[in-house]
Nucleic acid binder design. Structure first.
Length: 857
RNA sequence: GCCCGCUUGGCGGAACUGGUAGACGCAACGGACUUAAAAUCCGUUGGCCGUAAGGCCGUCCCGGUUCGAGUCCGGGAGCGGGCACCA
């Protein structure tokens, strides 16, 4: 019995595809374009199962669309700047560039062993000066356009990676990469004005119809738009040298008549000014500052305020003034760093008022209540305004508008919208990143590096012996002359956040060798990405930054579409069981086995092993399976098919050795079926008459074309695999069981050819090999997708279910589209139906053509 | 706390816009081939009752709409994810 030799076959076809440049994207091709892209990898050293899943999904789409007649762009590259290279430099005394390029070489080989249909001629590495020089130019353009700026501010400092992090990179108070608790530091940093596009980024989410709802919601929440009002409260008794008013942001201007106090953040400038003359206040501020930023600390922190003694005049009630507190729950970073409190209609203000004995005046009456009353909680819902002079009787929304109108009329405030989103801090105190092309001159200030001097490249002779930024400590690199005045000056030693590189790489792929960042023609040809595929973890990182970048670049005059990614598929994680030994140490899957009694034991000494939850594969838990080992022992096609067959792409996938074995058995079964079948020569005409069985088989073949096409169209790859296997089962049975004749042989050829053609996007090497075995000269990868015969996907006879009172009681065979009377008569004739009807005529008969007859008795 | 999603056999999952629940696969069990094993092939496999024909129950729970509900509506539980002193 012959076995499929994947080792030879896969290598063979990979070479053929490469030599014939089958997957080169046609810049000037005649067909409509289709750009499919997977999130490019960080070159950490070797690919993991997450990569295998991601790139398999993308490859299926790319191969399918190519077969469907599109000119496909399917590129691959390397997100090559980043911390691990520096860590490797520190640990192994190897230069980050050398380490990175060695990893790229190794991983490229691994990707090629998967048979992915990339146009490798477009490969890019972001750490290459020929790549990053363009983003230095972009940065200078953004600077000129006012989209990049420098400011001193509180930043998130990662003490382990010794660098600053953007807000998006802080997950639950910890660095997204290091996991270290983030500290606050005040530093001068470069920012990109992403907030300038907040509204557009938010509103355009509605247009991204082919994005998962989940990701859109996450971005929506992250941008966090709030509509409300800015209100100026005049201070009636502010000491000299201190501001005489406070600006407050609120989403509830309607509740202004219920205001009981004004509160400012502990780091509000006014609080700092007051603290100069008030030692108790400065102590209060110091204590509040100690409060951690961690979730738990915030959760348990008591709402505390300090009455400054200042009084703020109510904008609508002459002579009425509110106490001004410094409060630990007011955030300087949000709104204006100051709020007014309306205890009756905000739970936090309610608690604060109770604690400090402040009045609680209800101003919103719930619709179904007789009077507005103070209960034991704030009422935050809709209703009608009361106790509010000119607002009385208005609904909340109308009252908001009326209050804003009045504020504007009085010059006491104005309508305003604020966002949670903050500008993107892009400075990183690291070596292995793109240098920020700026020179600091004592005389001229901040001076952009002149364009003719780009790229600013990294020095190679750097030392990682001490902590901190090697660029800053380099003896000569940063010392330059000022391009403006010629005096002594220093380079910016910070580098860009590595999300900078990944914010435009998809556009570079369109013309990777262009002397400028992108050729206009190439952008028009290929952008936007039609289908983007990657992990959901980038929902508010990379995916938001990239959307911002296309907008910023457009404003700077670059050719760029409105949105970078028209379609998005977020794939689930690859998971595996976890194992621990008796001491609680994690074990690799290959260190354990199931013994004769079905118990999991350690292979080395037979000691018992605890099987833990199925979790995302991670090095720390050792529940990882190395794709290289799988490809080595089963081949790429088996790994690919398994990845596709068990779960829908957006759901998590549990890696199972048994499942892989099952796919491997399938691969061999198909191999044998096709290679052992006796088939007529390719192109033989269909015999004049076929038996009913063979016509049935042909129907199944053409139905499979239809359903697999639909499945691939909708990314239901697991169903596509199921349909392919179903047809395999049918053809296998036909081959073995029915008598041999020329008709059968012909149908088998049609069946196998179809099967192989449908399988190609999923398992390309096996399909290509079998295609050749069937006598085809033309490559399958260059062949068209099959068409189904419309007559064959419609059955002549249909099975109709017969129900009595909605319960299934039998089935009848009817000609397709049989009339109501015929269906009804056939159903009533069933003994089971007659029995239940008990001789009486049915009260009602519902006939759903070709589906069901329901007899109601 | 707020928002979103999910819940179907032992397991992963099918079921088009309300119309025969459990496709396809994994695991398990039985059998064939074999000296034996591997490989391969055939069969069984939601639960309960029954020798059988067949019947009853069954898509997280409770209720509703409907001739008919895994699918729609109301309420609840569990799990997962996002955000979180956001004014």
């Amino acid at each position: 019995m012959s076995r499929y030799n994947f080792r030879e076959t896969e290598a063979k076809w990979q070479t053929v595809w490469e030599e014939r440049r089958v997957f080169a994207a046609a810049d000037d091709g005649p067909q409509p374009k289709y750009y499919v892209l997977e999130m490019f990898p960080y070159p950490s050293g070797r690919i993991h199962m997450g990569h295998v899943r991601n790139y398999t999904l993308g490859d299926v789409v790319a191969r399918y669309m190519r077969a469907r007649g599109f000119d496909v762009l399917h590129p691959m590259g390397w997100d090559a700047f980043g911390m691990p290279a520096e860590n490797a430099a520190i640990e192994n005394k190897v230069h980050p560039a050398k380490w990175t390029y060695a990893n790229i070489d190794h991983m490229r080989g691994q990707l090629k062993s998967m048979g992915l249909s990339y146009d490798w001629s477009r490969e890019i590495a972001t750490c290459d000066p020929s790549y990053y020089r363009h983003e230095q130019k972009m940065f200078l353009d953004m600077l000129a356009a006012g989209l990049a700026y420098r400011k001193e501010s509180w930043v998130n400092w990662d003490p382990v990676d010794q660098t600053v992090l953007a807000n998006e990179q802080v997950i639950e108070g910890r660095g997204w990469r290091s996991g270290a608790l983030v500290e606050r530091r005040r530093l001068s940093q470069w920012f990109l004005r992403i907030t300038d596009f907040a509204d557009d980024l938010l509103e355009s989410l509605a247009l991204l119809e082919r994005w998962p709802e989940k990701v859109r919601t996450m971005q929506d929440k992250w941008i966090g738009r709030s509509d409300g009002a800015r209100i100026f409260f005049k201070l009636t008794n502010s000491p000299s040298g201190v501001a005489d008013s406070i600006e407050v942001f609120t989403t509830r201007p309607d509740t202004l008549f219920g205001a009981a106090f004004v509160a400012i953040a502990v780091d509000h400038p006014l609080a700092a000014a007051l603290a100069q003359q008030d030692s108790k206040l400065s102590r209060f501020i110091a204590e509040a500052g100690h409060l951690g930023t961690s979730e738990a600390a915030i959760e348990t922190a008591e709402k505390k305020g300090y009455d400054t003694g200042l009084r703020a005049a109510h904008p609508f009630i002459p002579g009425h003034a509110l106490p001004v507190y410094v409060a630990n729950f007011v955030l300087m970073e949000y709104g204006s760093g100051a709020v007014f409190g309306c205890p009756a209609h905000d739970q936090r203000d309610f608690e604060f008022a109770r604690k400090y004995g402040l009045p609680i005046l209800p101003v919103v009456k719930p619709k179904d209540a007789d009077v507005a009353a103070v209960g034991d909680a704030a009422y935050e819902g809709d209703g009608v305004l009361v106790n509010s002079q000119f607002l009385d009787g208005l609904a909340v929304d109308d009252a908001k508008a009326a209050a804003i109108e009045k504020l504007e009329e009085l010059g006491q405030g104005r309508g305003e919208t604020v966002y949670r989103l903050r500008d993107w801090g892009i400075s990183r105190q690291r070596y292995w990143g793109c240098p920020i092309p700026i020179i600091h001159c004592a005389a001229c200030g901040i001076v952009p590096v002149p364009e003719r001097e780009l790229p600013v490249t990294l020095p190679e002779d750097v030392s990682f012996d001490e902590p901190g930024n090697p660029l800053d400590k380099h003896p000569t690199w940063k010392h330059v002359t000022c391009p403006t005045c010629g005096g002594k000056a220093v380079r910016e030693t910070d580098t860009f956040d590595t999300f900078f590189e990944s914010s435009w790489y998809f556009a570079r792929f369109c013309s990777p060798q262009a002397p400028q960042a992108f050729s206009q023609k190439a952008i028009r040809r290929w952008m936007p990405v039609d289908q983007y595929i990657g992990g959901v973890e980038h929902a508010v990182l990379h995916l938001l930054y990239s959307r911002f970048f296309t907008r910023a670049l457009r404003r700077c005059g670059y050719e760029m579409p409105a949105e970078p990614f028209a379609g998005l598929l977020t794939q689930g994680m690859v998971c595996h069981e976890t194992y621990r030994d008796a001491e609680g140490r994690w074990l690799y899957p290959e260190e354990v086995r199931r013994d004769e009694n079905g118990q999991m034991v350690k292979i080395s000494d037979g000691s018992p092993v605890t099987v833990g939850r199925v979790e995302k594969m991670s090095k720390s838990r050792k529940n990882v399976v190395d794709p290289a080992a799988i490809i080595e022992s089963y081949g790429a096609d088996t790994a690919r098919l398994f990845m596709l067959s068990d779960s829908p792409p957006e759901r998590d996938l549990e890696w199972s050795e048994a499942g892989v074995e099952g796919v491997w058995r399938y691969v061999n079964r198909l191999w044998r079926l096709v290679t052992e079948a006796e088939l007529p020569a390719a192109g033989t005409a269909m015999p004049n008459s076929l038996s009913q069985e063979l016509i049935g088989a042909r129907r199944a073949i053409h139905k499979t074309i239809k359903s697999v096409s639909e499945d691939l169209e909708k990314f239901r790859f697991n169903r596509a695999v199921a349909h392919i296997r179903e047809l395999t089962n049918l053809l296998g049975e036909l081959a073995e069981r029915s008598p041999a004749d020329s008709g059968k042989a012909w149908v088998l050829r049609e069946g196998f050819e179809t099967l192989i053609r449908l399988l190609e996007p999923l398992a390309p090497h096996l399909a290509e090999e079998l295609w050749q075995q069937l006598g085809h000269g033309k490559l399958l990868a260059e062949s068209d997708w099959p068409q189904f015969d419309p007559d064959l996907v419609i059955d002549e006879m249909v099975t109709v279910a017969v129900q009595v009172n909605g319960k299934l009681r039998g089935q009848i065979e009817l000609p397709r589209d049989a009339g109501r009377e015929e269906a009804e008569a056939a159903a009533l004739a069933l003994p089971a139906v007659a029995k239940l009807a008990d001789g009486k005529p049915p009260r009602k008969v519902i006939v759903v053509p070709n589906r069901i007859v329901n007899v109601v008795v």
